[in-house]
Amino acid sequence: MKLAIPVEAKGLQKKVCTSFGRTPYFLIYDTDSRVEVYLDNSAAATQGGAGIKAAQIIVDSNVDALLTPRCGKNAAEVLEDSGIKLFKTRDGSIKDNLEDFAANKLEVLEEIHAGFHNHGGK
């Protein structure tokens, strides 16, 4: 199974990023092979619609699920259209969250915010 996570820096000990659309990197993690691939998030520097562009990157990576602390309305629409499941991360390292996911401890992300539109959310 392939997972995507917005992350602050490269390495499993690092933290999950609090922003989805404007995270610096995405970790694409294969739970079978345990291969970590880090993608630069080209949406981070865009003027607007970062969530949509970030979601497009995730969709194009053919992942099965996204683990994120939160997600905006537009990004959620893109992700749901392509059948990607959303799970809510908790405070802690990437590794903690991957272990929680493997143990079915992460909840499905249900609260979708209306978007920050450059007014915070970093």
Binding site: G49, K53, Q56, D81
Partner: peptide, 23 residues
């Protein structure tokens, strides 16, 4: 079109172009 849009109002998902009118 998706790559061109500086406001990211377009996305291409599951073989379809999606347009975000508000963006």
């Amino acid at each position: 079109c998706v790559d061109f849009c500086k406001f990211n109002a377009l996305a291409y998902i599951s073989g379809k172009l999606r347009i975000f009118e508000d963006i």
